[in-house]
Design a binder for these strands. Structure first.
Lengths: 201, 201
DNA sequence: TACTTTTGCTAACACTGTTAACAAAATAGG
DNA sequence: CCTATTTTGTTAACAGTGTTAGCAAAAGTA
């Protein structure tokens, strides 16, 4: 039974192929075009093999949602300059959020698509909770730096995330490119208004 | 050929039945459960009859998108009190926007769902353009009432819509009901920050 | 009544997710 | 080395989906 180690590695290889093939299909044709049969064809196995690694198609998309939130947090963190003022760092968070969405529109669409992320997901998927916590901490620091500390951090945290998602959804996914305003300008302006509302309360 | 008048009425009746049945199915089971065969069964006709009135399934959903934007504008207008201050009216617009989304979550989901509304839609569907124009006018009035009139109305208009959609999407569709903050509180707070950013520029 | 047009139906095509039943290959025990 | 067992992967099917070609029946027209 000691030989099972190679088998496990082979199984993991197949699972990675499923993930890689899925990503290729989605990037080329979108989520609607992703089907189990296409994945099976891509990995050169029959359909039930896919079900050995993912119990359903939803399990595959759920994987990408979880991975997406981890990547989003990573992108944000890479934009934040430690030691900078809290106001600047909040803007940097927004910039990172925007960058992720513009670089991975398909992933963002899935992560915030129809019905997702639901309440259950927030609790169950660790990467979502981690990002939530990160954003909440940033907002708490912003509030702490202001004069009026009796501001509802809960409201401001949700307001912040709503702004991030709202701008991204309207500007990026909707592709409102009818004029020459850079979408990130809208985000910067909106986040600035948000910051001022906390500072000069 | 003078008899065709009754026929036209009958045809319109069937088309209305398709729309009504579709709405019932969607409200009961969601957009994913809406199928041509279910519609055909509901109106007691065979499948191709549905295609006589709507050339594709997408044509049916597009109908609901267009109708939804008209209903959204109507809801907003019914919340706005003519003669009130521009600041109050902007908040009333936000309230109307929120009310529509909370009363018709399915419709809102479709209207701002995956890939919709795209740039083409904005141009092609009149009801979307009408709502855009309405929101833009409100923002223009808000800017005009402020000291600094050299604020980009384009940016602020898009910022406003982003806030509306962002809060609705995060608070309503995501069902983030893990604490006892009323979602509309978040919207009111965020819109207030937005208004202040224009007034005290 | 005979002809033409409209109307609505059945049945099929090419897909989708999912799974039961079976064959082949790899492993384990004697 | 041969047999028994487990694992692995296959084919084929079920119940759906959107969409459309071909045909029968009904309705309107001459």
């Amino acid at each position: 039974m000691g030989l099972s180690e190679r088998k496990i590695r082979q199984q993991l290889e197949v699972k990675n192929q499923i993930i890689a093939s899925s990503r290729e299909i989605v990037q080329a044709e979108g989520w609607a075009a992703l089907s189990i049969r296409k994945i099976a064809e891509a990995i050169e196995y029959s359909v039930p093999v896919v079900y050995k690694h993912f119990e359903s198609k939803e399990a595959i998309t759920s994987y990408f949602v979880a991975e997406g939130f981890a990547a989003l947090k990573h992108e944000i963190e890479s934009c934040v300059i430690q030691g900078d003022s809290i106001e600047n760092r909040v803007q940097q968070v927004a910039k990172g959020y925007w960058l992720f969405a513009s670089k991975n529109p398909q992933d963002y669409e899935l992560m915030f698509g129809v019905g997702l992320p639901t309440c259950e997901m927030h609790q169950q998927v660790p990467s979502i909770k981690e990002l939530s916590t990160y954003l909440l901490e940033i907002i708490n620091e912003l509030i702490a730096s202001s004069k009026n500390e009796n501001i509802s951090s809960c409201i401001k945290y949700r307001s912040f995330w709503s702004i991030l998602h709202g701008v991204v959804a309207i500007e990026l996914l909707s592709l409102n490119r009818w004029d020459n305003v850079c979408p990130s300008e809208v985000l910067e302006d909106t986040v600035n208004a948000f910051i001022q509302s906390i500072k000069t309360n």
